[in-house]
């Protein structure tokens, strides 16, 4: 167990000393290139979309229920 923690600590130290190994996306390393910028725009756009979709659906459901609760009982 202690050997496992030793290896994990060593790995973290190596990653802190050489942070370029942490970059998982090869395109992000070349952000000055147009293709890197293209990927970046696309990733940010697609990352935002699920939040937009859930907000719109959740907001609509919430709005319907709130409107129904405000209506006077017949």
């Amino acid at each position: 167990m202690s050997r496992f923690f030793l290896w994990v600590t060593l790995l973290i130290v190596v990653m802190l000393i050489v942070p370029s190994y942490l970059e998982a996306c090869p395109a992000c390393k070349t952000l000055d290139d147009p293709i890197g910028k293209g990927f970046n725009f696309s990733i940010l756009f697609m990352m935002a979309m699920p939040f937009v979709v859930f907000t719109v659906i959740g907001g609509t459901v919430f709005w319907h229920y709130r409107r129904a609760s405000r209506k006077p009982m017949d």
Binding site: P34, I35, K37, G38, F39, F41, S42, I43, F45, M46, M49, P50, V53
Partner: peptide, 16 residues
């Protein structure tokens, strides 16, 4: 989400 994927692909080519 389908159109987001397609627009995302377009952005890669357009900005790239």
């Amino acid at each position: 989400m389908l159109f987001s994927g397609l627009i995302g692909a377009f952005l890669v080519f357009r900005v790239g």
